[in-house]
Simulated scan of single mutants.
Amino acid sequence: MRLLPDRPSIEYLRKEAKDLLGVLRESNPDASLADAQRALAAEYGERDWPALKAEVERRAAETPTAPDGLAEELAGVFGLGSLSEPARPVSFTPMGRCWAGTTYGTLHALAIPSETPINPYVIWRRPEADWYLLRDRARAAGKPWAEQLDALLPALLDLHGIEADIASAKLILCNQNCIPSHVRLGRHGELVVMEWDFAGSLTAELEVGIALTHWTMRPSINPKAVAAFREGYLDVAEWPKLDLSSFGVAVTAWLNWTYNAICEAIDPDDPNDPERAGFLEREAVGLLDRPMTRAGLEQLLVV
């Protein structure tokens, strides 16, 4: 589930909804703006567009506003130049997906050797038995989605058969976290990557596998998005040879994220905070409603 900032902009979300409409119409020409708004609301864990707007208005009313001139002052102190306009979303635009491919391809073409250990979060998986225990905990807690989790277990465990082959792989420096929410359009129309904290060792194949699950499966699997991403990548580098094992790291990260999110929904860190508990509940439901599947990953290989 995507996170709203503390002070979200409804105009920003309207722009995202219009961009998303274009994506929906790539596979369904009859899709409407209301369909796009509803899908975007689900991305943010809200039941519909009015609920998303209400949450934005609530945060706008409660969050302190930065004093006028603060952004300009900070830009001057750090030598960032002049502010030209607010940051713009790119995650749902065809050009945004193409630029993302170019960004990945540019980094991979450098082939900077990396000897740092791979982050355990993306290579270590819980035993399958832990998922059945998690289902039992959800049932004991009276969660309304416990049986949905039970029905999904075969598909989740089927993902365990998709493993990354990294024993003999040549590792290079990769961003590892260049997801749609971490990029913006710069003032000259270029893509700006805002998150490098998790940069580390991977292979080009494994990072492309991660990228495809973030850039081309929202709100659903989109072959045209895959083609746009691949086109951008091919502008600067050779497209890596992909198979199901290329998604091994992406699978592990998603399984761990999903397991942890469900654990937190069952046992919130602060049960006296209803807002936090509600967020955790929505995130768990969102993951169960739109799970990663082997069939979905196989579709990404057909380009």
Rank of each mutant, 00 (worst) to 15 (best):
D6V: 11
D6E: 14
D6A: 15
D6P: 07
E16N: 08
K18Q: 15
L20C: 11
V23E: 13
L24V: 10
D30S: 15
A31F: 03
A42F: 01
A42D: 13
E43C: 09
G45V: 01
D48I: 04
A51H: 04
A54W: 02
E55A: 11
R59W: 03
E62L: 15
P64T: 03
A66M: 10
P67F: 05
L70T: 05
A71K: 09
L80E: 07
L83W: 13
F92S: 15
P94M: 02
C98G: 07
T102Y: 08
T103E: 10
P113D: 01
E115P: 01
E115Q: 12
I118F: 04
Y121K: 13
V122T: 12
W124H: 13
W124G: 07
R125C: 06
R125H: 02
E128A: 15
W131I: 02
W131C: 02
W131N: 02
R137I: 06
A138T: 09
A138V: 09
A141V: 08
K143W: 05
P144G: 06
E147Q: 11
Q148P: 05
D150Q: 11
L152I: 04
L152S: 08
L153W: 02
P154H: 02
A155M: 09
L156W: 01
D158I: 02
D158Q: 08
H160N: 11
G161Y: 01
D165K: 15
I166E: 14
S168Y: 05
L171E: 08
I172S: 06
Q176C: 12
V183T: 15
R187D: 14
M194H: 00
E195C: 09
D197R: 06
A199W: 00
T203A: 10
L206G: 03
E207T: 07
W215E: 11
T216H: 04
T216P: 06
T216Q: 04
M217Q: 13
P219M: 07
I221E: 12
K224Q: 14
V226M: 05
A227G: 01
E231P: 02
V236R: 11
A237E: 10
E238P: 03
E238Y: 06
L244T: 02
S246Y: 00
V249Y: 03
V251F: 05
V251N: 10
T252S: 13
L255W: 03
T258F: 11
Y259Q: 06
A261I: 04
A265F: 00
A265N: 08
P268F: 10
F279W: 10
E281P: 00
R282F: 00
R282M: 00
R282Y: 01
A284E: 13
M292L: 15
A295W: 06
L297M: 10
